[in-house]
Amino acid sequence: MAIQTRSLSWMERVYLSLLKGLGITFRTMFRKHIVRKYPEEPIPRSPITRGQPRLAQNEDGTTRCVSCGLCEFVCPAYAITITGGETERFIEREPKEFQIDMLRCILCGFCEEVCPKEAIFMSDELEFAGPTRAEHVLDKQALLRPISKLRQRIEFSNSIYNRWRRTALPADPAKNPAGPAAEPPVAIGVPHTDPTVRNAPSQDSNKNLPTRREP
């Protein structure tokens, strides 16, 4: 196949058309730059951002975590260490110590996915730097964040994980005979909404972040 070439114009042959390029760069010099001055101007983050994991803290300052150990177990990087303890509150157990080694954490989000108590969430905190190793092993106090700060992520996470929860509404089997709902009733994955729409926002009551009242 022959390559189509265009014969150069007179201007181009004597390199005079280089001036055109010079003109473009000169004009660009006085145009507005398109740079975000990062540390001063924060990066806009959406709820889908999977930042560092943080523990949710209720409005009354208590932790939601019951130190069940699921996140510690599921963590592929062995970053989580929980020391369980008892409490007088209704949930009976809470972590005495909850450590996440951020140098090990790979921000996979498994802990958030597995948590049955909506206690750990991937926050939108991304900045992660320091001169020592010790300061990256975060303890319970450093990890606790009020749920108001995590609300966006909590809602997002509910919308994508609720379809795996037993508390979700059962789907109408007649509607989707070939869908997962048509499988034997022991299936744990029962979509609560139309399964063809993945990640659909939940219409579930969980959206309102149920906090159990203590008796």
Binding site: T25, F26, T28, M29, F30, R31, K32, H33, I34, V35, K37
Partner: peptide, 10 residues
């Protein structure tokens, strides 16, 4: 600096 200005940078 000049190269940055010519490329929409700072």
């Amino acid at each position: 600096r000049v190269s940055a200005w010519m490329q929409f940078r700072i």
